[in-house]
Structure formats: C-alpha cells, structure tokens
C-alpha cells in the first residue's frame, strides 16, 4: 500500500459572514426544525443532522481533511454522537420511505383518474441504449394496405423471426373494394394468426387491409406522416422500430443491406424473365460466400429477399444458384414462410 496524497491542504477556511445556511428543502424535517427552533425566526443549520455533518466537515474549528481515514472515522463517531443516535437516522429513513410510498400512491391515483393502464409505462416507451438513451415515442398503430395478389410475406417473416424479441400484432381486414381475397392471401392470414403473441414483449399493432390498391402501402398516422410505399420500405420501417438486434443503420454494412433491399424492390417490379434473372445474379453476387446478406447474422435484408422471392412464383428453385438455395434454406428456418 502507499499513502494517499492529501488532496485538500489543511488550512483555515474563513466563512464569509455574508453567507447564511441554505433552507432545507425537505419539509417534514424542516418543520421539525422549526418546531425545535420555534423561538428564532431564522432556524439554525445545526439543528439538522444532515446540515450538521456538512457544516462539521467544513467547519473551521475541526481542521480535518475528508480523506484522512483516522480523522474520518473519528468524524463519523463524532457525527453519530452529535446527531443524537442511530434512531434518528432510522426514523428519518422511515419517513423518506413513507413519503416515497405516498408519492407512488399519488401517481397511481392520477393514473387511474386519467384512465391509463395500471401497469405503468408501456414497453414501447422504454429508453433505448442504441439511440443514446432517448425516450422512444410509443409506436403508432400502423395500417398496411396490400393487394391479395401481392401478399406482403415480409410481415409473416418478421413476425416469425422476431418471435422471441418483438410482437407484431396483425389484424386483417377485407376492404369493400376487394370482395374475394383468394387462396394465397387466406393461407397467409391463417399462418399469421398461428404465430402466438407474447404480451410481455414490446409490440406494434398492425392492421393489414386487403384492398384493391396498386402498391403495398403503410400509413401510421395520417395527420403526422406521409404513407410509405413498397414492401421493402415497410421492412425498413419495421427494422427501425423493431428489436435492437435487427436495427441496421449503425452497422458498418448498412449500405450493403440497403442495396440488397433496393434490388428486392426492383425485382418485384420486373416483368420479364430476363430482367428477373439479372436481379437474381446481382443478389447472388451480393451474397457471395457470406452466410447471410448482412454477414454472419441474419438481417432484414434476408427477410426482404426471402419474402420477395416467395412473392414471385415465377422464380422456381431452378432459377436460383446453389448458394442462394442454401441461403434460402437457412433463412426459411427463421422466417418459416
């Protein structure tokens, strides 16, 4: 061991006479003090155990250094003596606890009278480490309009992939412009409803509306945000609000992931076999020898590609390269489309 350097040199501190002790904020203690010092208009800091210690530390009479262990123990002894006994500390602690309890009760009452959920803040309101500890806004319920011919398989894929992380609570509706949704969409609906919902996980409520619309579009709040068009962009949105494991914007390869998603977007708009094949070649190139499109870990890029391929029945296993087929098997285990 070695000796610690004294941080504060021992010299007299002259308290200026123009200073006066701070008012004690804690009312109950203050009122006690007032009772004790009822005779004087200004109450003296020495009446308060806490203030006493503070004053003692700095007091010119004591000439002690806070870091001097011997002195410190002596000071604690002193303090204990001067603050009467342990009982008062205990009483004080009790009081503080009681106040806390009162405060809690008060909060609960306010919450009840406001008609809020009794369970306290929602999961979506949790602070996140990833965005610098900022409080996240509760998520809006979102509406996704989809045409039954262009089933947004990504929803199911994400729902399955996030089974243990995040809940996507999907309700499906048929719009009046779409009397019959067909086999694929009904199958998709059934599969969606089979995924169990874990209430303990953070969640986002999605209303999927089968509608006679041109694009798959997402509306979160008509007054605050413009709609988001295209399935890959909805994947991006969900990737941003979903579980941390799938947020990709801070990853070194985020550009890569974006590029893959953009290829998916184009792939879905390909009309000819030729253009589709070239898109597949591009995907194959991007995948290379990696396990997934984003590297070793599955990312939303994989979800995007997988659900896009699922949506194009024209692409059979024959069109896929061996690497893509292998990859598809791996992803299928997670997404279970």
């Amino acid at each position: 061991m070695y000796e610690l350097k004294t941080l504060l040199p021992e010299y007299d501190i002259q308290l200026p006479t123009c200073m006066y002790p701070m008012k004690v904020l804690n009312n109950s203690v203050a009122s006690e003090v007032i009772k004790a010092d009822a005779c004087s208009g200004f109450y003296n800091g020495n009446g308060n155990p806490l203030a006493t210690s503070a004053v003692n530390c700095l007091g010119p009479k004591k000439n002690v250094c806070a870091l001097d262990l011997d002195n410190l123990s002596a000071q604690i002894q002193n303090l204990l003596k001067s603050s009467n006994d342990v009982d008062s500390v205990c009483a004080r602690q009790e009081k503080v606890l009681k106040q806390l309890q009162d405060l809690k009760q008060q909060m609960a009452n306010i919450r009840a009278s406001l008609g809020l959920c009794q369970k306290g803040p929602q999961h979506t309101g949790q602070t996140s480490l990833r965005n610098g500890g900022l409080r996240e806004e509760p998520l809006h319920d979102i509406v996704i309009n989809g045409h039954p011919n262009f089933v947004p398989y990504a929803l199911l894929a994400l729902k399955n992939a996030w089974k243990n992380l995040f809940t996507i609570d999907v309700r499906t509706f048929k719009h009046s412009t779409m009397p019959d949704i067909g086999k694929d969409a009904s199958e998709f609906e059934k599969k969606l409803s089979q995924v169990k919902i874990d209430p303990s996980k953070p969640k986002v409520k999605v209303s999927l509306i089968w509608k006679n619309c041109e694009h798959t579009e997402m509306i979160s709040s008509p007054t605050m945000y413009v709609p988001i068009y295209g399935e890959v962009n909805i994947i991006r949105y969900l990737g941003r609000v979903g579980p941390e494991e799938y947020r990709y914007e801070d990853l070194p390869n985020c550009n890569e992931i974006d590029a893959v998603l953009d290829i998916c977007y184009q792939l879905l708009r390909c009309n000819t076999t030729k253009s589709r094949a070239s898109m597949l070649r591009a995907l194959n190139l991007r995948l290379g020898k990696q396990k997934y499109f984003g590297g070793d870990k599955i990312t939303i890029a994989d979800v995007g590609v997988h659900s896009s391929l699922k949506r194009l029945p024209a692409i059979t296993s024959k069109d896929l390269t061996p690497t893509l087929t292998e990859w598809q098997k791996r992803v299928q285990l997670v997404t279970q489309l």
Partner: peptide, 25 residues
Amino acid sequence: EPFKFLEPPLILEFAEGVQMLREAG
C-alpha cells in the same frame, strides 16, 4: 364516393379515438 367498409369491421376504443383527435390538434 362509394361507401367503403372493412370486413371484419374496424373496432376502436373511445380512448384511441380521443388520442387520434388530439394528434390532429
């Protein structure tokens, strides 16, 4: 405009409706 509806019908809670109104100011 032709009448539009969803099947099954959309059911919102009053509190959600109030929330939507507040968002709209």
